[in-house]
Design a protein around this nucleic acid. Structure first.
Lengths: 330, 330
DNA sequence: CTGAAAGCGCTTACAG
DNA sequence: CTGAAAGCGCTTACAG
């Protein structure tokens, strides 16, 4: 049972293919009589236009590639931020009539596949999510001239992006700790090849310097386990520390576990501040004080930025504000 | 700067379009001489076949639609299982040379969009994720004859699926609690329009009945907050309960918070067992005893099942085993 | 093994 | 407003 074609509809309605095409595409230059017959025939036959044929004829597609830089172990996609972003992005994109093709571009071969997809003309636009600085993909896609935006500031210049105020957020977190009388304030960073990690670390460093305190740094990778390990290491290196700023909530959760294991009370002995305000932050013991990043808004803004590109809208970066949510851990 | 076509390659290589097509598609019936010239020309021109044209000519596509039943609030996609499944599925599908289009089909209009996509011939196969029982989508897609599998047992008969042993897992959890001397064992269920929830509840009920204990049930929806609320309600209704089986880890995390707030010690006063063994289960205080569901394997198996459909492989359901992981909460 | 030709199902100037 | 015709860029019998 083959699917009905435009031609079948035309035959059924007793009009030309051109007219059917016009009606189907909502053009207004069609007489009501013809329109009705066509609509009738479409309904009777259950006609739905063939997507491939349409794409070929128009030389367009409405597919947006959402490319998530995800290493094989799945560090990124384990992050609740990932779900949040993917969900919001697909909802918004769908609402705009776009189709989304999801690509996890962690390996060299998956990056190649992403390039092929764009090269094959399958894709009208690209949205990059959490690219690592060293990733060559943004640059090579940019060279192909496909409209592209990035969720998070990418290291490739010239790609429009949306981010939240990472430096400012870290600054607020550290200032708050200082204001609470904390003096030995450590940090656990994200992977340093990501701009967000660099910015949060910069905010931390800068603020401590201004306050005349020294930096105590452990390098993590945004996973819980790296937060746990980072915290243990910090405790080893500097048993007298009285606060830690984790560059995301997942690592803060790991740090809480390490502190528990070490018998330190939170916040009495060590204050803990995270970053992101994922839902889990409400369920830790004690509940996590953290910088709330406006992921949903940020994702929606990224979609708008991409959609705007198709209409020649300005490509200016968007930086969204964030704020400190004070709970019980600091 | 237009992209080069097959025709351009043919001209450059001094051969026919047919030959170029054959080489590009890896057919073996081509003389080495021609093959080399074509490969050379392809390289020089940077030729990549136009996807739409190919799809139209072959009447095929390699796009797999991954349809996630996600209500507007995003209950499902908040779940770490979601990320895990989406990640594994896309990795496996990509490895098989398939492209994935992600659809969050929570609303009536997004369901319609999914149908249109399939009707337009854009999709070679469909993978359903966590459909609610009442969802009409599986049935209507099945009617269109598109190859389809479901991650999780769907309520629509005839759709091949992969699941894990929900009844067995719940049974193991409850048996363990009984073996530890617990007598008043409550449960917090998932949304009851999902088969997984029904099965886990059935396992719980059945086991308690066999042991001569009565059921104490609160209805949740797989979110942390519903676990918290469910637990409070259970505590109100039956202050003497000494154990709770949460139908997933997220709700167990919520229950832990409620128990903390109520001043109950875990596991001394109340034992808690979850289901899924998400990574967060390792970071709760105390660490969560839970039924480990083999999400990654299950996702991979679902992909294999779908791929098998294209080769006429058997459509038998696959049920994967799970096991109880004993930690500190019970 | 190779090539000319038809066909996939649409859209879109163009003429009327 | 309507229709005939060309064209989008491939694939694939078919003949040689």
């Amino acid at each position: 049972m083959k699917r009905p074609t435009l031609e079948a509809v035309a035959a059924r309605a007793g009009v030309s293919k051109s007219s059917v095409s016009r009606v189907v595409n909502g053009e207004t230059t069609v007489s009501p009589a013809i329109r009705d017959q066509v609509i009738q025939a479409v309904r009777e036959l259950g006609y739905v236009p063939n997507g491939a044929a349409r794409n070929l004829a128009t030389q367009r597609t409405n597919v947006i590639a959402v490319i998530v830089s995800d290493p094989p172990q799945g560090l990124v996609s384990d992050d609740p931020m990932f779900s949040e972003v993917v969900r919001t992005v697909s909802r918004e994109l769908e609402a705009a009539g776009k189709q989304i093709t999801l690509m996890l571009a962690g390996s060299a071969e998956s990056r190649l596949r992403a390039q092929q997809l764009v090269a094959a003309g399958h894709v009208a636009g690209v949205m990059l999510v959490s690219m690592h600085g060293a990733d060559p993909l943004p640059a090579s896609l940019a060279r192909m001239g496909v409209p592209m935006v990035s969720f998070n500031r990418p290291s490739t210049a010239g790609v429009p992006y949306v981010d939240n105020d990472n430096v400012g957020g870290a600054t607020r977190a550290v200032r708050y700790l200082v204001s609470q009388g904390r003096r030995r304030i450590a940090t656990i960073t994200g992977p340093l090849d990501m701009i967000a990690s660099q910015d949060r670390l910069a905010g931390y460093r800068e603020t401590l310097r201004e306050c005349g305190h020294r930096s105590i740094v452990a390098i993590g990778d945004f996973t819980r386990i790296s937060g746990d390990r980072g915290m243990r290491q910090l405790l080893d290196d500097d048993p007298d520390l009285d606060a830690v700023f984790a560059a995301n909530d997942l690592m803060a959760i790991g740090a809480l576990r390490a502190l528990r294991a070490a018998g330190r009370r939170v916040p009495e002995d060590v204050a803990v501040v995270g970053f992101d305000d994922i839902e889990a932050a409400l369920y830790t013991a004690p509940a996590l004080t953290t910088v709330r990043s406006p992921m949903r808004d940020q994702a929606a803004a990224t979609v708008r930025l991409l959609l705007g590109l198709f209409d020649g809208a300005p490509r200016d970066p968007v930086i969204m504000p964030n704020d400190l949510v004070i709970r019980d851990s600091a």
